[in-house]
Design a protein around this nucleic acid. Structure first.
Lengths: 144, 144
DNA sequence: TATGTAAGTGGGAAAGAGTGGGACGAACAA
DNA sequence: TTGTTCGTCCCACTCTTTCCCACTTACATA
């Protein structure tokens, strides 16, 4: 289970350390994709395979699924985790998530997300404020 | 799996480098065709065969599929990948996709697309805006 | 407090990828 | 037949990427 929040530096060579607690679960190869709400998603190879399969069920001839497929596939990168647990963030993904020299790496159950430092702070603040009402909303549909 | 986004130069001789990560999967011969949304498609020989077969199954009696077939077949070119991974883009395809001295090469699962730099930027921007709603529209993609 | 271990950061060297240019051969025109 | 042009193939240079190693900081333990 991937949990916790870590701030790591994204160095000149676009390398980003994964928290050591994540490494075993993440494996040696991961896929980084644009995520939702402005962050990046990091998937294990097997997770990614499952996603790709779902996506491929849609027809190339339909505009909407073409768009979304391009979004997910062209935006994705398979990258090795180096010998000391770092991954490479290509420039176009770095831009997409507005990453500077610091990035926040968070664990969300079974996936890892990478956030711009400020964006994460604000997002968190926003959620904290709404936490109570969110809880009720989710409670209403029987989550907890 | 072909994924990622790369910007390469299209030189004076209309040569375009394929990303090194694509080369093994692409093989030595590819078929370049006019694509959809203003880009070019690049298929492996075997994929092209499959596509051609599927297209030929569509009824010749329907005006629409006749048109589409003409669009795909007449504009298609088979071209070798040279010893260091470049392909030749004939002038008429270069024009069709409005390619300048820079072109964006993207991987979309099992096909490669070639885009005019600006056109890709704008297309991407447009899709990014709609990404969240597209994701919902296309239904739960499991992890997402 | 001192020492050892593990994690995060940074830099250097080697390998690989991308770009450009030149040479060779075929085709066409004079 | 000769000269020119166009296309293809091959080589070389340069820049980027990747791999490996070293340093530093933080934490834990004795």
């Amino acid at each position: 289970m991937l949990i916790g929040e870590y701030t790591h530096t994204l160095d000149d060579k676009n390398r980003l350390s994964m928290p050591s607690r994540f490494r075993q679960e993440m494996g040696k190869k991961v896929v980084v994709t644009p995520g939702l709400d402005g962050c990046l998603f990091v998937f294990t190879s097997s997770q990614w395979k499952a996603i790709a399969e779902r996506l491929s069920e849609s027809s190339m001839l339909q505009s909407d699924s073409r768009s979304f497929n391009r979004y997910m596939f062209a935006g994705a990168v398979e990258t090795d985790v180096d010998s000391i647990g770092r991954i490479l963030i290509p420039d176009f993904l770095k831009e997409r998530a507005s990453l500077g020299s610091k990035a926040v790496v968070i664990g969300v159950q079974d996936r890892v997300e990478i956030w711009n430092e400020k964006a994460w702070l604000e997002y968190k603040k926003g959620v904290e404020k709404r936490a109570d009402s969110l809880a009720e909303k989710l409670g209403g549909i029987g989550v907890l």
